[in-house]
Design a protein around this nucleic acid. Structure first.
Lengths: 190, 190, 190, 190
DNA sequence: GATGAATGAGCTTTCATTCAT
DNA sequence: GATGAATGAAAGCTCATTCAT
């Protein structure tokens, strides 16, 4: 579901690809997208050539990192939606997305800056997430757990914004919990 | 209070400095911090040399842009605090900061990336804003308009996050208003 | 006549530009177009940045070298055409073009390989030369010094080919003269 | 005579080698020597590894392509020399070499650029051709069909140059014939 | 003070060649 | 023998910063 390539990669190639993605995720998240490709390759224990064989462009690497994150979120979202009742599912997902999304904003911006059409493969995964979110939102609204006038775009923007809030706030769990309280209270019907 | 230089600038130099700040604000906001210095200089109608005479570093230019924004915000915040009663003052300021802050996040990140201690001149203006915000918050809490357990760090993080939300949401005024409703509802005591 | 830029270059810039062209001509001619740009810059005593300021692309540098050569040839062609009677002018020009053109073929090929439309600025100068050659050919044919059935395209191809012949032959003046004899005999009417 | 390897190749290996040579000839001729090895391998339906097993160097592949061409020319030259009378044999061979040689110039240059002594295996085949040409030339001169003062180096240079002429001229058969007329007229004694 | 040409470290990307599978 | 993933030196080009004019 996540593999665009036709044939399966050779064992070592797959290992390298995975390592590159892991390293890139880590590096981009902690040090920003400005980090030289060469350094990512070195950190993954491969040559630059290998990196560029797997991801023909730095932008492609960025995109792949994003896609993988989005897919992981989508998977956990689906799981949660299946297991819990509407309100719990909705707010649980909100938490989940926010917790998983930290640092993502920079990627999104970098990609956006690189040209609007860059999203090609991103669209797909983000579309899936959006569909799931839309469903969760609708059910929570029918259930009376979320104010009825909230649209999907606002929800998504709030997810992005709350991630930014958390990123700015740092790791203090009490403070983070308070933010969730504020936002969730605001989301409930009057 | 906003001039670090000792002697006053010559008339044309001051004009150049102002134009550079205006152009840089515009360019950084709309096209990101990756835009070459040369281009900013050209757009301001001066040579690169002039730019670097006024701002010895690209980072310094970024900082100056930020400072000016923060000062503007501080000024309008002060005005609002003086004129309105606690609740109105608090929520008015929240709106104001968010509306003024769009696009700022990237600056903040760029500055942070360039070294944590870079803030030198920033600290000052942001300290001022923070002091005003702290005061507005305290008064609104005493007045019973804002939940009592909210600290200044959470407030600031929420300001940053709500800016991000708005940035992601685009210009639709109805949607933006709904976001404010959500956040403000969440901020009020239960 | 040879300057496309609007304003005149600063003295030092003009000097650098000229040096770069000289060095590039020399290097490309003797060692081929594969020589790194950086090396050309070093040989000209400037940094790479300077080279790329003057010629935004390696291809642009190639083109500029070609244009300068073609312009020199055109100028000397014009002079010869004005001073001599038809036969002498025609054959004199043939010699001149061949002598000046050595090594040029590789440039032409490299440019062609880089995209057919690259010729932009080349077209102009080569058009001028072609016009002069057409005139010389016509006059020599009317004068009965050159076989009447020869067209301009054939003449140009012969110029290119004879340059290649000479390039392959090396510097031996007797042998070179014999080649000219062969070609010139062949060009005269039966 | 064309195999330098000692032991005979396995059937599939021989097939691969032949395909590689065919494809390389085609690709180098039409698109130049800058084409990546990987692409040639793919076009031949083999992996790069196989290409490099057969030709340890890109240059070696180039050389092999050249050798095969030269051998083909040598064979047809021998045949022509045996069947026709001196004049016809000489001029027929000239045509033949020129027609077969198109595109070769770039190869020759690439080889030359890669080191003067690179010719190892080339020398052999080109020596054979040269011997045959020398003989044809001598006989044609004795027969009075070619000017007596022309040496072998000039002849070879003329072959190279006429190939270049033709390459520049394109496929128009009338124009090509006119070029042959010019050169052949020039080669005949006064 | 203003200018913009010069600088060169650094970035992304390509490709001949090697070697584990 | 064949494969193609891995390699890394090198190439073309950018851009913050300096400095002669």
């Amino acid at each position: 579901m996540s593999d665009t390539q036709g044939r399966p990669l050779r064992a070592d190639a797959a290992r390298n690809r995975a390592r590159l993605l892991d390293v890139a995720t880590e590096v981009f998240t902690t040090r920003g997208v400005g980090v030289p490709t060469e350094e990512i390759a070195r950190a993954a224990g491969v040559g630059v050539g290998t990196l560029f064989r797997h991801f023909p462009t730095k932008e492609a690497l960025l995109e792949a990192v994003m896609v993988r994150r989005l897919e992981a979120i989508a998977a956990r979202t689906a799981q949660l939606a299946a297991e819990a009742e509407p309100a719990e599912a909705f707010f649980g997902c909100f938490r989940l997305v926010v917790d998983q999304s930290e640092g993502k904003n920079e990627f999104a911006r970098a990609l956006a800056a690189a040209g609007v059409d860059a999203h090609a493969s991103l669209r797909e995964s983000s579309t899936e997430i959006q569909a799931r979110l839309a469903e969760l939102l609708a059910r929570a609204q029918q259930f009376g757990a979320v104010r009825a006038d909230l649209g999907l775009p606002e929800l998504i923007a709030l997810l992005v914004g709350t991630s930014a809030t958390m990123e700015h706030l740092g790791p203090d769990p009490v403070a983070r919990e308070r933010i969730f309280e504020v936002v969730f209270d605001g989301l409930r019907p009057r």
